[in-house]
Amino acid sequence: MAVPTSIDAMLAEVMAELAGLEDPKARAVNERHGDDHGVNLGKLRALAKRLKTQQELAVRLWGTGDSAARLLALLVCRPKAFGRDELDGMLREARTPKVHDWLVNYVVKKSPHCEELRQAWFADPDPVVASAGWALTTERVAKKPEGLDLGGLLDIVEARMKDAPDRLQWAMNHCLAQIGIEHPAHRARALDIGERLEVLKDYPTPPGCTSPFAPEWINEMVRRKDGR
């Protein structure tokens, strides 16, 4: 890729390259998972590696609204450069699963505003936004549980997970499993909640993969941690 003379020229060139990477087979696979682009993620990552970190370009790519461009933006941005309100707005625009997931995991988790956003999103009435709050809470359950009310989290899961919309339900279930895996004092209750609610009990799981059904997930990960 030649070096364009302006950010407009660079944006146009990158967008043209993304268009050239469009693959109908990749689009078909992505659409089955709720995503609306046809770019192979390995090729997208290779392009990001070539571009390196470019915050201004990342902002312009995000502004196109194109999912592949937004994924690329999340790979070439500087996470700490975004303001709190900027990240909040970006999350509310990120409606496809992959863009939402990468924004939370690659950008928000590295932001100085992460904890403030976790608390704000956790109780948001929009279930997709709330799912981000739960994902960040799950990260804290595993890595920095100090100050979290784990029993209170289990109360919410027990009361709301069964009837939660899909993406929020998945995030709550992950939190339930993580509490059971990482915190032995709460494990029996986490297992009991999972058994009674039966969320994702029949989820199709490929051979060799761990089921997302919380009791099976918890027991398998504890077995691995104990070296059994």
Rank of each mutant, 00 (worst) to 15 (best):
M1K: 09
A2G: 14
A2S: 15
A2E: 15
V3F: 05
P4F: 10
P4A: 07
D8K: 09
M10T: 07
L11H: 01
A12I: 00
A12T: 13
V14L: 05
V14K: 03
M15K: 14
A16L: 13
L18R: 03
L21V: 08
L21Q: 11
E22Q: 14
P24C: 08
K25R: 15
A26R: 15
E31V: 11
D35W: 14
D35F: 11
D36R: 13
V39H: 05
V39Y: 04
L41N: 11
R45P: 00
A48E: 09
K49G: 12
R50W: 04
R50T: 15
L51Y: 05
L51C: 06
Q55W: 01
E56N: 10
L57P: 08
A58S: 14
A58Y: 07
A58K: 06
V59H: 10
V59A: 12
V59K: 14
R60G: 00
L61S: 04
L61E: 04
L61I: 05
W62D: 10
W62H: 15
A69T: 04
L72I: 08
A73F: 07
L74A: 11
L75K: 15
P79Y: 09
P79C: 08
P79G: 11
F82P: 01
L87I: 07
G89Y: 05
M90D: 00
M90G: 01
M90F: 14
M90A: 12
L91N: 07
R92A: 11
R92N: 06
H100I: 04
W102D: 13
W102E: 12
V107C: 05
K109P: 03
K110G: 11
E116A: 15
Q119N: 13
Q119E: 14
F122Y: 13
A123I: 14
D124M: 10
P125E: 06
D126R: 08
P127W: 11
A130N: 10
S131T: 09
A135W: 06
T137R: 04
T138H: 06
T138M: 12
A142T: 13
K143G: 04
K144V: 01
G147D: 04
L148N: 03
L148E: 01
L153H: 11
I156S: 08
R160N: 13
M161P: 01
P165A: 04
L168Q: 10
L168M: 07
M172E: 12
H174G: 11
Q178S: 15
G180S: 00
E182Q: 15
A188L: 07
A188M: 05
A190K: 05
A190D: 03
L191G: 01
D192P: 02
G194R: 02
E195S: 03
R196C: 03
E198G: 04
V199L: 08
V199G: 08
P204N: 08
P204A: 06
G208W: 03
G208Q: 04
T210L: 11
T210A: 06
S211T: 05
F213A: 02
A214H: 05
W217Q: 09
W217V: 02
N219M: 14
N219L: 13
N219W: 03
N219F: 00
M221I: 06
M221H: 14
V222E: 00
R224S: 01
R224A: 06
K225H: 15
R228Q: 14
